[in-house]
């Protein structure tokens, strides 16, 4: 059997497949359907300092090959996460990422201080949630704003720091460079695209917040291009995501420059989709004679750099 192991930031992943924040809760629901230890990793539901009820009104709206969501970071708060959810997650024998959102620099810092003293494996700093005013995306649009928060967080963060980028950034390549220069140990991209839908009979937006986040296969080509661009600009590990539905999509992201990939909306279509993707990647490696994913990582466009 081919070996799909990956190591980034000194952390071993059994395979490159991580379930994406906001699509997998804290793993409990999916543990009813498969053994979570098969996963490369799990990224927690987006956390905030205090408990959040999330947005009112409609939260989901299907689009062609995709989905708009406006959940609004409903979560139990970082303390309840540490006490009630993290122990369960750590029992799953896979890498655990804490996805950290925040409305202010102070909120991010308080959360990092709390998480520093847990056995969480990595921090995924969410500067890209479009669905709450204080969801962090304010920090993910302009490089200067991102630099400020990443620098401060990095100063106190005792865990490997992944910064999750928004595709709504002014320039994704510049944003990636800014975050790395400010201390990001790795980058994950992309979060959802800002989008909207209108109820034409009610003559009003479908969502109370008007703007929601678009995900699913409809964004894949753009997400892939962004991973490709970013991988040519920075030297840190990259976690690629955006509409990955099967092993072929996953391999595309890896060839575009991703070390690891995340599965988001795909979990909604099939709770065991990650297993199919892991098996598919290993089978592809076997059949293609690939012994290590580093052989194909970022092979697209590599020639241009030489």
């Amino acid at each position: 059997m081919a070996n799909a192991k990956v190591n980034i930031c000194g952390i071993d992943f059994k395979n490159p497949v991580i379930t994406a924040s906001g699509t997998f809760g804290f793993g409990r629901e999916y543990a009813d359907y498969f053994d979570l230890s098969r996963l490369g990793g799990i990224s927690s539901k987006g956390l905030t300092l205090n408990k959040k009820d999330g947005n009112k009104g409609i939260r989901l709206h299907e689009t062609p090959s995709g989905l708009l969501n406006s959940i609004g970071l409903q979560n139990p708060g970082v303390d309840a996460f540490i006490e009630e959810e993290l122990p369960f997650m750590k029992e799953q024998n896979t890498v655990i990422l804490a996805n950290v959102g925040g409305g202010s620099l102070e909120e991010y810092l308080k959360m990092i201080e709390k998480l520093n003293y847990t056995d969480i494996d990595m921090i995924e700093l969410n500067i890209s949630c479009p669905n709450v005013k204080s969801g962090g995306m304010a920090f993910g649009i302009r490089c200067v704003d991102a630099e400020r928060v990443v620098k401060e967080v990095k100063t106190i963060c005792k865990k490997p720091l992944i910064v999750k980028l928004s595709p709504n950034a002014e320039n994704i390549g510049d944003m990636a460079e800014s975050c790395v220069e400010s201390g990001a140990d790795a980058l994950s991209l992309v979060n959802t695209f800002s989008g909207m839908a209108i109820d034409i009979y009610g003559r009003k937006p479908v969502f109370d917040n008007t703007i929601a986040g678009l995900s699913g296969p409809c964004i894949k080509p753009i997400a892939l291009r962004m991973v490709y661009e970013v991988s040519k600009r920075v030297d840190v590990p990259i976690i690629g995501m955006g509409g990955i539905m099967d092993y072929k999509d996953a391999i595309e992201f890896i060839m575009a420059g991703a070390d690891l990939i995340q599965i988001g909306s795909g979990n909604f279509i099939n709770p065991t989709i990650s297993l199919d993707i892991i098996d598919g990647i290993e089978d592809f490696m076997e059949k293609q004679g690939i012994r290590d994913l580093s052989e194909i990582k970022g092979i697209i466009g590599r020639e241009n750099l030489c």
Binding site: T23, G25, I58, R59, Q74, S265, P271
Partner: peptide
């Protein structure tokens, strides 16, 4: 309610109740 995952993970179908969401 509109649903995505159907198994309780995505929080898309949440409604408001007197005991919270």
């Amino acid at each position: 309610s509109k649903m995505a995952c159907g198994i309780g993970a995505c929080l898309g179908c949440t409604i408001e109740t007197r005991d919270g969401m």
